[in-house]
Design a binder for these strands. Structure first.
Length: 521
DNA sequence: TTAGGGTTAG
């Protein structure tokens, strides 16, 4: 583009810088700047505006601010575009003092802030915890009277998203005084009520749209249905789905799916199924997600028959099961103890990119360990470890399997590895490890584990003290003394736990070895 | 710059 013999003008450079920058070729932008300098071709205000906006877009705010300074040093007058670009960039990064400095300059030059930047200011002040300040800016714009629906909505949304519901309401009311409301303001206000868990208000506002001569659009319905479903109010949500259907605004199964999954969540599976049936009657095609919801629901119930029914139905309608569905099936087969089916499903999962995750692998370990199929369980466990995916569940299940099969050495190694990797975090895991230590005669290790448990603020339970009681008993503490410790703990858990700790410390603290028959202690 | 559905165990 830069041909020899023809001197490119500033305008040409501006165009090229703009093009390169928009394509992300920032090195070329820098090289063009150097060429400009070499040719003594002077950048103008527009050149700097482009540079500031490009660097802001590429998240290099320092460079954007630097060009602003260079521009002024070159005695070029920043214009409304310059200020708007930089002020917006500062606002969305919550750079309050930098933004305020610019605003001051703009006021001096009598330059107006555009409404898009204004809503960014509202957000910035809210993020900074300066609610009053944000409100005074909102008012300044509101009183100037040139706000659009988009701007009012952006402000209502800014307040609503952060739970400032009364400011959102005030902004909404300001809007209704100044101009005719549109669906947009209603939608963000409904969303605001949802975020503040004011579901009745949301419904009431939605229902009042008609009185304002407005019809709710797809977004109004979707957000209301979504919020009600998420708030465990599926019955209410269902009535709006029906209304939405009546209005001809349902074109996929997503709103139905939200409500169906809400019914499942609150345990009303029959309602979920009947809404699903209703959806089919209306000719809305179910997709793999909504099938997934039902299959998972029946998997949780251990109902192979129903889960399979929906799986078959899904396949018959030409949909392929995905990794999520196979994971639900593995959960189901683990629950009911169908090893062969689980193995087959696990094999199917291998063909997926996300494929074999910890969850499904742990299900397989669970199945194998219940059957004492040590080798098979180990194989999966090794695979998990190799990929760095083995988690607390994986380790705990392996530990239990080893223990059940009398493989104490392996069990202890596992327990130690768990601690080492920081995977011992849950009460159940601690209890597993303590139970193991107690039955394997590792009293010092039991005490250390118990102390670790207390210091990581895990509340011990009855099962914890059952194992510790065995430890004390094996150390020669009489049964009566142990029962006394337990009744003390039942009466006053706090001091009871302390009594247990000192009893264990005094008995075990004097031992000089742990498990005399082991050499790896 | 309005909203959006599914899997996480002992």
């Amino acid at each position: 583009m830069l041909r020899e013999g023809i001197l490119p003008t500033t305008v040409t450079f501006n165009t090229m810088i703009h093009m390169c920058g928009n394509n992300g070729r920032m090195e070329e932008v820098a090289s063009l700047m150097r060429k400009m300098e070499g040719l003594q071709c002077h950048p103008d205000t527009r050149t700097y505006n482009i540079l500031i906006s490009l660097h802001a877009k590429h998240d290099n705010i320092e460079m954007a601010a630097t060009y602003f300074k260079i521009m002024k040093d070159a005695s070029l007058e920043p214009d409304a575009v310059t200020y708007r670009t930089l002020l917006y960039a500062f606002s969305i990064r919550n750079m309050v003092s930098e933004a305020e400095k610019l605003i001051l300059e703009m006021d001096k030059k009598d330059l107006q802030i555009d409404e898009f930047t204004q809503s960014a200011l509202t957000r910035m002040y809210l993020e900074a915890g300066m609610v009053e300040m944000s409100w005074s800016w909102f008012q300044r714009f509101h009183l100037a009277g040139k706000m659009s629906s988009e701007c009012y909505s952006a402000n209502i949304d800014a307040y609503g998203e952060r739970g400032h519901i009364s400011e959102a309401e005030r902004a909404f009311n300001c809007c209704s005084e100044g101009k005719r409301l549109t669906v947009l303001e209603f939608n963000v206000m409904i969303k605001a009520y949802g975020i503040s868990k004011k579901y009745n208000e949301a419904c009431y506002l939605f229902d009042s749209m008609e009185k304002h001569g407005l019809s709710p659009d797809k977004c109004s319905y979707s957000s209301l249905i979504q919020m009600l479903a998420g708030a465990d109010l599926p019955l209410k949500a269902a009535s709006y789905v029906r209304e939405m259907k009546e209005a001809g605004l349902v074109d996929d199964c997503i709103p139905y799916c939200a409500v169906i999954s809400s019914f499942v969540k609150v345990g009303q599976l029959e309602m979920a199924v009947s809404l699903f049936d209703e959806m089919i009657v209306f000719g809305i095609k179910p997709d793999v997600v909504v099938y997934g919801v039902l299959i998972n629901a029946f998997a949780d119930m251990g109902s192979v028959k129903d889960a399979t029914k929906y799986l078959v139905e899904m396949r018959n309608s030409g949909l392929e099961a995905n990794a999520v569905i196979y994971t639900s099936l593995i959960k189901l087969y683990t629950k009911v103890g169908y090893l062969r089916e689980a193995q087959e499903t696990y094999k199917m999962l291998q063909s997926f990119e996300e494929g074999l995750d910890v969850y499904s692998s742990n299900c397989m370990i669970d199945l194998y360990s219940e059957r004492s199929m040590v080798k098979q369980a180990e194989e999966i466990f090794e695979h998990l470890k190799k990929k760095g995916n083995a988690n607390e569940f994986s380790y705990a299940m392996m530990l239990c399997m080893y223990r059940r099969n009398g493989m104490f050495k392996e069990a202890i190694q596992n327990a130690r590895k768990m601690k080492e990797l920081g995977l011992l975090t849950d009460l159940l895991s601690y209890n597993n490890v303590l139970g193991l230590c107690a039955s394997d005669g590792r009293y010092k290790e039991a005490l250390a584990t118990y102390k670790e448990m207390l210091s990581s603020a895990i509340q011990p339970d009855d099962s914890t003290f059952k194992s510790l009681g065995i430890v004390l008993l094996k150390c020669g503490v009489p049964k009566e003394a142990i029962s006394k410790l337990e009744s003390m703990r039942k009466k006053d858990p706090q001091s009871g736990v302390q009594e247990w700790t000192s009893a264990l410390s005094s008995v075990i603290g004097v031992l000089d070895t742990d498990s005399p028959d082991s050499k790896d202690a």
